[in-house]
Amino acid sequence: MPLPPLSDRTETLVVLQGVSKSYGTAEGPLMVLQAIDLTLDAGQSLALTGESGSGKSTLLHLVAGLDHPDDGRIMVDGQEIGGLDDKGRASLRRSTVGLVFQQFNLIPSLTVAANLAFHARLAGRFDAAWQRQLTERLGLDHLLARYPEQLSGGQQQRVAIGRTLAARPKLVLADEPTGNLDEATGDAVMALMLSLVAETGSSLLMVTHSDRLARRLDRRIHLRSGCIDATTVPTA
């Protein structure tokens, strides 16, 4: 599919052009991503699937501005990440992007309530009413005074999702968000996340191993050895 010029893509939230990334290893450089082209429109959801080591998480990290590509251009919400310094990238993560990790990565020293509000307050978008609504929808209202270590895995993941969505980011990046949960809990958490993402109007880029979960998103891209597989198809 030919890629339109970056400047014309006003409804497009994420654009990747010829993005490559390698890591140095003891055996020499390891190519993780090779010349990736990809777009994600505002409000759209996209599943990234592939084998372990195919470069899914790396791609997600590059879009989040957590890492630099060796080659190519990445544009998020009209800003080219390559042109941003450390401070600019931090600002992008704070205001535009929300991250949900497989390991939850909650802040252990803060209560559930403080964890939920943390990113929204950091981004200057804290909305008490929305937070209350989120808390209820996520079934966390009776856990607000607890600390992360006092929660089950499913509860922790719900807090992580709530923390991201409380900030209403334009782009939600999720890396195997249900990878640590059993199937039933994972399904329930995923249903909740998708519905909330839809309500906030955010775009979602999600890494997953699960075909079943991938099918629930608008589009799906399969990565194989750092390249986009030709068999990639829209799911909708």
Partner: peptide, 12 residues
Amino acid sequence: PQLAPIWAMGLT
């Protein structure tokens, strides 16, 4: 592990 999430959420 304690600092990385804060960094990911937008602190340099």
